[in-house]
């Protein structure tokens, strides 16, 4: 039986929207009884659409938010009672540009947080330069954070979360808004952290990222756990569908509408990138639908750059789960 580093039972969280005078105007249920458990050394992903309850879960687990009901134990301690003991052993990375002191240098940010975590000066003097090296900020550590790119800030966030060498790391959408190179860089850092034995909870919107990094993935939607498995296991749940992927030049609207109207097509998704459109069609009859798509594109004078039949991805599994 693997050792658990975290466990929640029936975790529920409601937000009350109050008027200036404190009157409750509305209630939003962010978590509706979430029960998860994470093993020591595991990289556990939480994926879900906006408002699914991912960040709320991370905030409760990192002692920054109280649950409305239910229990959450982190490293064997209760998040509502053992705040300071838990905080000494966990690290949190929030995604986005906020959360750093922009007007001082990256080095000063790290030294400041080292002090707040009670890291002796003799240790931080050695560890901080190592962290700067690890996240690739060597040579830029004395510049003000406001001069950093978004990717650099995100890497500094990670270094900040590691100043006290925590056992458990919470990464809340660490690659959000980063360019592909920046995201890859962060993913490499996450992999090396996992290899060093840290337990990691990762929330993300990017399915390929979850697929590449996570040992297990919890899919949450509207505050509920809708699926939990290894990435391969989640993909098996959509084995009944195949995908036709076509990349086209030109206005694809007519093609998309025609494919949506096809009886053998269950879903059509499209994504525009630099003048090209990638259309992904879910269907149990891929070869037939592929031919129909080629014909239709030709009818409308749309240039097909590439067309192929693909295995379903984690994204396809995810979309089916959160839409059901």
């Amino acid at each position: 039986m693997p050792e658990k580093c975290l466990e929640t039972v029936d975790l529920r969280r409601e937000y009350l929207n109050r008027s200036f005078f404190g009157k409750v105007k509305s209630r939003t249920v962010a978590l509706q009884g979430l029960s998860i458990s994470v093993n020591k050394g595991e990289l556990y992903g939480i994926i879900g659409p906006n408002g699914a309850g991912k960040t709320t879960t991370i905030k409760i687990l990192s002692t920054l938010l109280l649950p409305t009901s239910g229990t959450a134990m982190v490293l064997g301690m209760d998040v509502t009672k053992d705040l300071y003991r838990i905080r000494k052993r966990i690290g949190i990375v929030f995604g986005g540009e906020r959360g750093l002191y922009n007007r001082v240098s990256g080095l000063q940010n790290l030294l400041y947080f080292s002090d707040l975590y009670g890291v002796p000066a003799s240790v931080s003097r050695k560890r901080v330069p190592e962290l700067i090296e690890m996240v690739g900020l060597s040579g830029r550590e004395n510049e003000r954070v406001e001069k950093y790119s978004r990717g650099m800030k995100q890497r500094l966030h990670i270094a900040r979360a590691l100043v006290h060498d925590p056992e458990l790391l919470f990464l809340d959408e660490p690659t959000i808004g980063l360019d592909p190179a920046g995201s890859r860089n962060i993913r490499q850092i996450i992999k090396s952290l996992k290899q060093s034995g840290k337990s990691i909870i990762l929330t993300t919107h990017y399915m390929f990222e979850a697929d590449e990094l996570c040992d297990r993935i919890a899919v949450v939607s509207k505050g509920n756990l809708v699926a939990l498995d290894r990435p391969s296991g989640l993909k098996k749940q959509v084995k009944d569908i195949t995908l036709v992927e076509i990349k086209v030049f030109g206005d694809p609207e007519n093609l998309i509408e025609r494919m949506k109207a096809e009886s053998k097509v269950s879903r059509v998704f499209s994504e525009d990138l630099e003048g090209r459109t990638t259309i992904r069609i879910q269907t149990p009859e891929a070869p037939e639908v592929l031919e129909a798509a080629r014909r239709t594109a030709s009818e409308y004078g749309i240039k097909v750059i590439e067309a192929s039949i693909k295995e379903p991805t984690l994204e396809d599994a995810y979309l089916r789960m959160v839409e059901e």
Partner: peptide
Amino acid sequence: WNGTLECTLSAPSPLIWI
């Protein structure tokens, strides 16, 4: 405004000292 209040509070130092 900086978004550092949560990071500050996530540290184990009691807020009063900070």
